[in-house]
């Protein structure tokens, strides 16, 4: 199994653990990843809300390069996945858009190479059966809330799982021997860039999600989006200091837990780089 790998900007900086753990999981599961040469930023939300065509052209350039590689793309970042999927669907459905995009990117993207999220590649294509057969250790009943956010599951036609009650990561948690806590905020929005750009507004959104996880009695939250991760992980400190919060919920990328269960050393997948310490919970469940 081979994919063109699109790490995206976050996985090279704030989401570095996601990159480390994704590569580790790929290696363990024999998924060959070939990074898209000279890839560019997908534009994220800023791109398409500033210029509609630019919002399609930026991801389309990367897809066009992958098309030359003859590979489908794996994009771990939820936002990158969403933007690339949107471009893929738009180009496939309209020759007019394809032509415009080709003019802008100076490359023709025909829509032959598609994009998949890392969730799909690891948990659906490779599959939980194969993963279960390769487990080295299990989560020992760790209570984990799967948090999907927005861009993996919406809008209709782009999302890779149910928009109200997705189960892909929940099923993984169960397969890894954890307890997938069913909670109602799986797809509530964390505010995306609002905690940075308009912190008062954004922090309330983060606060609501963390609070719901807290009263649901979780040991940790697992996510598949670097922006969600930053908001949930780094902003706990802000909330505790500025808003009288008392949060201490470790956040994991799904690939971190998966890599650890597949036998990777936690330190190798970046769990020490988190703002909220993961040491206690990993210790508690014998995953050091």
């Amino acid at each position: 199994m081979k994919y063109a790998y699109y790490p995206g900007c976050s996985l090279h900086s704030t989401g570095i653990e996601y990159n480390m753990s994704t590569l580790a999981v790929a290696k363990k599961l024999n998924v060959e990843l070939e990074e898209i040469p000279d890839w560019n930023c997908c534009g994220a939300s800023a791109g398409h809300t500033t210029n509609h065509l630019l919002g399609l052209a930026l991801p389309a350039r990367n897809l066009a390069i992958a098309e030359k590689q003859g590979l489908d793309v794996m994009a771990p970042c939820a936002s990158c996945y969403n933007r690339m999927k949107t471009a893929e669907v738009a180009v496939k459905s309209s020759p007019e858009i394809r032509a415009k995009v080709a003019e802008i990117t100076e490359m023709d993207y025909a829509g032959n190479s598609g994009v998949k999220s890392a969730l799909e590649v690891f948990l659906k294509e490779v599959g939980l059966e194969k993963i279960k057969a390769s487990l080295v250790r299990n989560l020992g009943g760790m209570k984990v809330a799967a948090y999907y956010g927005c861009l993996l599951v919406r809008p209709n036609g782009i999302g890779m799982d149910d928009p109200e009650d997705p189960m892909t990561m929940d099923d993984m948690i169960t397969a890894l021997g954890g307890e997938a806590v069913q909670w109602p905020f799986k797809t509530e929005c964390c505010g995306a860039s609002l905690p940075t750009a308009r912190s008062k507004v954004g922090l309330k959104m983060v606060n609501d999600i963390l609070q719901m996880a807290d009263i649901s009695g979780v040991d940790a939250i697992v996510t598949a989006c670097p922006l969600c991760f930053v908001n949930l992980d780094m902003r706990q400190n802000d909330l505790n200091k500025k808003a009288g919060g008392n949060f201490n919920i470790p956040i994991f990328y799904f690939t971190e837990l998966l890599a650890i269960a597949l036998g990777e050393k936690p330190g190798k997948v970046g769990v020490k780089k988190h703002f909220v310490s993961t040491a206690q919970v990993l210790d508690k469940y014998n995953l050091k």
């Binding site: 900007c9 704030t14 560019n40 800023a46 860039s193 308009r198």
Partner: peptide, 24 residues
């Protein structure tokens, strides 16, 4: 909303000049 507009603008300016976002 100057703050959000500015954020978006800085974000895109970073992409336009580097090809990628320079988060720092």
């Amino acid at each position: 909303d100057d703050e959000i507009a500015t954020f978006n603008e800085k974000f895109l300016r970073s992409v336009a000049s580097n090809g990628r976002v320079f988060e720092a």
